[in-house]
């Protein structure tokens, strides 16, 4: 295993342990699974050190795809290769997928009831607020760097206001931002 050098004694973790560990993470996460993944990986099972977890997380956030799915891929791969990655991801997604489809079917049955629709609208409104708050929180570490604020504002305006296609926005903005970051570093 090529990731071994960051941890001298890589714990032995079997494929079924990976499946079960991530199965529990998938079941416990309400409104975001990452905190629960960290607790399982670092605090409870000690498959990763704090530092290793931060590295796995930063890689997961940098690459495209759902962050938590990327975490399960990297952790599964680290201990059991492709089968481990598959087991961890399957464990993570299995129960939430079943639950949400059951909920959706259930919702369809009761959507005509006005109180249910009212509740659903209000939950959407609150969830939109949570999303805005996450964005504002994530802006804290970058708000003192003017060019980063500029890139953030352009990304917001292009997608949120102008509703431009994401592919074109990223194709222009990502190289531009990397260019500035590279130039600013020296």
């Amino acid at each position: 295993m090529d990731t071994k050098k960051s941890s001298p004694a890589l714990p032995h973790v079997t494929t079924s342990e990976l499946f079960v560990g991530f199965l529990k993470v998938g079941l416990s996460g309400f409104g975001g699974v990452l905190p629960f993944a960290r607790r399982m990986l670092v605090d409870k099972r000690r498959w990763l050190t704090e530092l290793e977890f931060n590295e796995v997380l930063s890689l997961s956030q940098f690459l495209p795809g759902p962050n938590i799915v990327n975490v399960s891929i990297i952790v599964g791969r680290r201990f059991q290769g492709p089968i481990g990655a598959l087991a961890a991801t399957l464990g993570l997604m299995l129960m939430p997928l079943i639950i949400i489809l059951l909920l959706a079917a259930l919702y369809d049955q009761f959507a005509q009831i006005e109180a249910v629709r009212g509740a659903s609208n209000a939950v959407s409104a609150a969830a939109a607020g949570l999303m805005l708050a996450v964005g504002f929180k994530m802006a804290r570490p970058i708000h003192k760097t003017p060019w980063q604020v500029g890139i953030g504002v352009i990304a917001f305006a292009a997608i949120g206001l102008a509703r431009l296609p994401l592919l074109w926005v990223l194709a222009v903005l990502a190289p531009l931002s990397v260019g500035i970051a590279w130039w600013q570093r020296r």
């Binding site: 930063s58 956030q61 940098f62 959407s124 409104a125 969830a127 939109a128 607020g129 999303m131 805005l132 708050a133 996450v134 964005g135 504002f136 994530m138 802006a139 570490p141 970058i142 980063q148 604020v149 500029g150 890139i151 953030g152 504002v153 352009i154 990304a155 917001f156 292009a158 997608i159 949120g160 206001l161 509703r163 990223l170 903005l173 990502a174 931002s177 990397v178 260019g179 500035i180 970051a181 590279w182 600013q184 570093r185």
Partner: peptide, 22 residues
């Protein structure tokens, strides 16, 4: 550099998500 560069893009996109949802 890539990590520094992508952070503000992500922030802008997430605020845009919140805005579009609202």
């Amino acid at each position: 550099a890539i990590q520094t560069a992508l952070a503000p893009v992500t922030v802008g996109l997430i605020v845009a998500s919140g805005y579009v949802l609202t």
